[in-house]
Design a protein around this nucleic acid. Structure first.
Lengths: 232, 232, 232, 232
DNA sequence: GATGAATGAGTCTTCATTCAT
DNA sequence: GATGAATGAAGACTCATTCAT
């Protein structure tokens, strides 16, 4: 078998074991048994247990980074809310695909190894930075109310992490709806009140029950309108 | 030494080790070295590593439970926002007192042991239930907008967890302010927009910069006014 | 409590524990819990675990030694068979009284401690010597057939040990009958055939079923008649 | 090294240690030091100390079972005494080959572990059953006198056990002679007296000293003639 | 004398990693 | 490259014995 293919195979099986048992309770014996390779073979492809875990982590973090895109401003860009929605959906979609692993990697993170821990902390730090910058930008643009943007960024990150954790434990198919709820909650939490006011009437008239199941993700208006105004 | 006093001593030292190194990387040798007791002495008070960890966990969860009080409605009760604020402050105060441990216990929890994991999951589940019930109540009372209260409850919980984690890593002294930010963010996220509108003017006139440091926790108005209306 | 009385109390309880769990599986904690004394108190009366066990052993061996009396020859003495019977009954009676302990001490003996092991081996060696001397005497007196008296002595000892072990596990009330069976078996095994022959007629006429329950221990004739002839 | 070969090697060395020091005083360190293997290697082949001991026990009991054959009756079969003699010799030969271990396993048995104890007790129970059945059969065939065949079976078993124990401590090369003595003792102990009587003359005439060294095992007549009569 | 907390040597067992075949 | 037997450091846990109160 090709070197790369064999690597993938082992990674694939290791992923499932790690997901089910966690890093510490997983041992090499488990992995090689599932991957049906010999003990020595494992070490032909990975330096050690930490190494294979780190690779899975790197894959995951890389994938997530690619799915979380920086807000772009410009008349040819989708409005900010739309961009946030897209980010959120891409992230949740990925989590749904790689449920268990994502959970292990993202939510039950610390205590592996100094270096691994740092990678995760660092990842979150960067995401937080990105959220904070978006908030600061929003304030500049008069879309976001004044607040401690760092603290609020943590709140937003935490909310998403928690939803991700739940999603990884209890599959849900309506990821789009879920994304909408988070977005709605977050945007209202930071929006300048005047922006919400303007739409009060619309919402009041809509008699659709919003709780527990928006009619459909596409129609889910939520509060995302608040970022719809021209941005220039 | 008195039985109870010795227990406390060992627990005290174990707490610090667990906090610094995590559950898996902590071994009995570490604990007894720090507590300056013999190996056997440890086993005089605790059955095993899991046991002492579980006790610390139980203490922590118990303390937190006692600090998170159910919302009480009645004309002789503080308004809901005030009650939420009090809960939040009590929790953050505790976290500040028991920084590292809280973090280990609450945020880097899974993968110890099936049973321990379950206790933590269960604790969060109950807190989520409580948040959700509060939201449902808020909807009934026309204070909270219609939404997927379960999902939003997770967002709120996650936000608090993340702040707690940050607080445990980087000490902050202005817990009251932090509590206000979270509260503000959360309340706005769930409040019916009309309730926010009414105070727009007041806020605009107040020239105090809100971001990064409310003048003082006591004056920090935030969005908590939204729950100030008469509840009957 | 008087020193001696306290010692007895502890010995009493230790005996039961040792009997139930054996030497190695018994620990000091078991003993002091049952005797309701403190850990330190135990060491006030006994040097160590080995010590208390050795004392019980010494008691037992001493008691047994006193119950196994040397055959005495003389016209004023009971005939040899009668003396053997008495020895056997005294031993079995004791075993019945101290069932479990006897078993532990006598049958599951080795592997405690070099010195303890030796005491037991030594005890058995002496008993064997005594049996062998009796046999040699019997040969001189033309009561016993020529044989390897050492080997036969071991056979006899072994038979008794086995019966003792059984008796300690499964109580039996008809010790006298049991003694008779052993005696009968042993005496026939060593007697000169001519001595058996002479009584053939008597036995044939007696129609009582001997197997499984001699009518009564007192009447149990067995083969002991073989040593009834005048010994001078 | 081949898996099976290594197993044997470890078993071999463990056997010697167990034999010399007994079960409880033997520790894994002893075994691996003697077998010159690493600690982990031991656990590659055996789960724990109990496991390796149990395997040795199983081997031994299995071998003994195969050497103790049921009495077969028929004109084409050797007479019963001959069959008993063969059984006895096979057992003693084995004991001689595996002296120390046999002793540990068979005579100093209890107190290891509930389960191991039971295996040994069970083995002896079966052997006793077999002896008892032989006696009952002998009674039917008018070869054996009436007696408590259970009690006598224990006596016979005990005798053999004791001889085995002695043999394991003090090597003897004349196993055949020893077997003859045991057989002689046992058969006379259970034979109907008339059967012994008939040969009185023969024996009397034979001037060979029987005690301590029968001229030769082959010629050793003993009392085994008693079962020589036609069985049909 | 009595107590029971404290001790620490002694053992067992696991498991990531190496290396000769 | 592949194998899997071998390694041994690391760590958990027990329990007979001591000793200050």
């Amino acid at each position: 078998m090709e070197r790369q293919a064999r690597r993938e195979q082992v990674l694939h099986h290791a992923k499932h074991i790690f997901a089910r048992k966690g890093y510490h309770r997983t041992n090499i014996a488990d992995i090689i048994a599932r991957a049906r390779i010999a003990r020595g073979t494992f070490y032909l492809y990975f330096q050690n247990k930490r190494d294979i875990f780190e690779e899975l982590l790197a894959q995951t973090l890389g994938e997530l980074r690619s799915r979380i895109q920086r807000l772009r401003i410009g008349s040819d860009q989708p409005n900010p809310a739309e961009q946030l929605r897209a980010n959120l959906r891409r992230v949740l979609d990925f989590v749904l695909d790689e449920r268990e692993l994502t959970d292990i990697l993202l939510n039950h993170s610390t205590g592996f190894d100094r270096e691994i821990d740092e990678q995760i902390v660092d990842f979150y730090e960067r995401v937080t930075d990105q959220i904070q910058r978006s908030l600061d930008l929003g304030i500049e643009m008069n879309l976001v109310r004044r607040c401690d943007t760092r603290a609020v960024a943590y709140c937003i990150l935490g909310g998403i992490k928690e939803i991700v954790g739940q999603l990884s434990r209890n599959r849900r198919d309506d990821v789009a709806v879920l994304a909408e709820e988070i977005l709605d909650f977050g945007l209202r939490g930071v929006a300048r009140p005047e922006l919400l006011e303007s739409v009060k009437m619309e919402r009041e008239q809509s008699s659709a029950p919003v709780s527990h199941g928006v009619a459909g993700a596409e129609q889910a208006a939520g509060a995302s309108f608040i970022f719809r105004p021209k941005l220039d």
